[in-house]
Design a protein around this nucleic acid. Structure first.
Lengths: 188, 188, 188, 188
DNA sequence: AATGAATGAGTGTTCATTCAT
DNA sequence: CATGAATGAACACTCATTCAT
């Protein structure tokens, strides 16, 4: 792992624990046994670090939606749930920063992130609409349903801690039927 | 509305938009046409303001769970959903701060908030367990289901804006079947 | 005791314990169960309070030198020692402020205090010179001797606490021979 | 002289002239042509600066008592007087701060200083007791006598200014007989 | 007399960032 | 690459003082 990635990782951990504004550049540096100013040989600004973390998390999430298997909508939604949760669990700090701190990006960046998020939500909504067309889901408002499901999944970063009661696999196995049930595709 | 409530409201709006650490005391004061230091005739510290906001939001949420109607678990869960969403929608800034910024409270306060949150989640879990015992819900892991539902509901603060496509009533009407479906009590 | 004297007393106690600059007007007010601003119905400024305290202490000291008994220089010096120590002991807070905080007065006041101190020291020096002329003291540099004696006496405020090992009377009885010895008039 | 010592010196001068609380960090910085915040690259807090000054003064004084010559108690007391006065005169700002401002240290530090002062006073008291045992001093209350002598010496910081009527050597020559006289060891 | 709210300047301290070495 | 010193703006908070009530 290069120096740059080390910086992103240290910053990701700190941003996720204390928030972007409550984390000083010096603290990030100290994690790498550097002086505060020394980071600037590697980065241009604190905001760049935030943006890179958010971007990388966004990229991991977008892979989920790009690699869904063929199959009926129930299979595809479950794969989405599993993939989405895997990103959250495997990249807990990055995902936390992605959900919490993207607002602090300034405008050229913030809008870019907003569009990525919207596209992701839209992909889920379309997945749900497919299921409705296929007759396996019964959903009145697919947009609302997509927000509902994403909320349920995203909230996981609030309480999931590695080494807890549920491993990542059990988590996905537990969530899949809940999601399918919500979409009216529970059994049939 | 007394001066103190005005302060909490202005602070709540700013904290919810920019976050606690990115909001300066001077900015809160400016909203009330005051000098920065003048706030301290009314408050003891910035943290006190955060705590009061969080506490009041917590209180609003706890009322929801205390005023559930009699009836079968489906009715009660739907009332919970409706009540919970109403607090989020009516107190959007306070609720946002409650979800996002409580972590920045220092220890005597933070723990108190944590316990309120846990109690609230437990109440929902027990509601779900009731439904399972009554035979109206089919849920494998009530704890996980409670976290799932709460996540789906709480996430609303991320996208809900007054004057948007859905009013608070439609929001609740849309969410209720999604929640019941997730809990396996969709149509029985 | 009028309100004004209550204020001086409370301020004297606080100034002597924490120093002038470390004592806020609000703290003085709180001792009298008042709000900070309410003091200004009685005083013009914080500095006025300091000046009054210093002035009153100076007045008490100047009485000592004005009321010396007739007699030989040894008797008069001992009366000076006794009187000076009595002021320190009886007015410990005022005396402490007089020694410590007069420097913080601004110029019209500060110079006035300086002159009072100088006059007081000069009086002691002349007392010593009398004794030399009378042949009861043997002192090379009466000015230095006066400073020596005053220092020894004044320092008492640093360690004297009411209720300690020595009462005010024993203190004077202990100091008198030390002073006379220093002036070469110990036993004759 | 390193930057840190420059800071202590500038602070020592200002603290001694205006007092600790009336000296702002910005003023100390200005003496070194720095911005206020820049000091914090060198120090942790304003209080640390005060503590270092007090500690260094205390160290200089303690050397006096450790380096007394052999000889009878009169010789030793005079060496003490000479050494003590030399520290005051040579380190006038530090000594002034040591006498005046140590009270503003907060508790872990303050107690440490208190103990150093007490130990120093005890050393002088024991010196006086030696002299009594040797028969060269006649003193009723050695503890009081030690306080008397220390007060007389310490007070020098109140009026001594370099370039005044008396140089440091004459000062010591003038004080020695006064001290010996006070202790009843004047001539014999 | 006293209050309570307000001011405007100031406090010690932290911050992201720069730069000569 | 990294340091250590520096900047200048900002921070939360305190202060002596004012003033309408």
């Amino acid at each position: 792992m290069g120096r740059y990635e080390e910086i992103l990782d240290a910053a990701g951990r700190l941003f996720s624990e204390r928030g972007y504004h409550a984390t000083s550049v010096r603290e990030i540096a100290r994690q790498l046994d550097l002086q505060g100013g020394s980071l600037y040989a590697h980065i241009d600004s604190k905001e760049e670090v935030l943006f890179q973390i958010v971007e990388r998390a966004a990229h991991r999430f977008s892979e989920v939606v790009q690699n869904l298997p063929e199959g009926d909508a129930r299979v595809r939604v479950c794969a989405f749930v599993r993939g989405h949760l895997r990103v959250i669990v495997e990249e807990l700090p990055y995902a936390t920063v992605f959900f919490h701190e993207w607002k602090f990006l300034s405008e050229p960046y913030k809008d870019r992130v907003r569009r990525l998020r919207d596209a992701y939500e839209t992909a889920l909504k379309e997945l749900i609409e497919e299921g409705v067309r296929e007759g396996v889901f019964r959903v009145e408002d697919p947009d609302l349903a997509a927000k509902f499901v994403l909320g349920a999944l995203n909230w996981v970063y609030q309480w999931y801690r590695p080494g807890g009661r549920l491993g990542p696999e059990e988590l996905a196995r537990g969530f899949c039927p809940l999601v399918l049930g919500a979409l009216g595709g529970g059994e049939g």
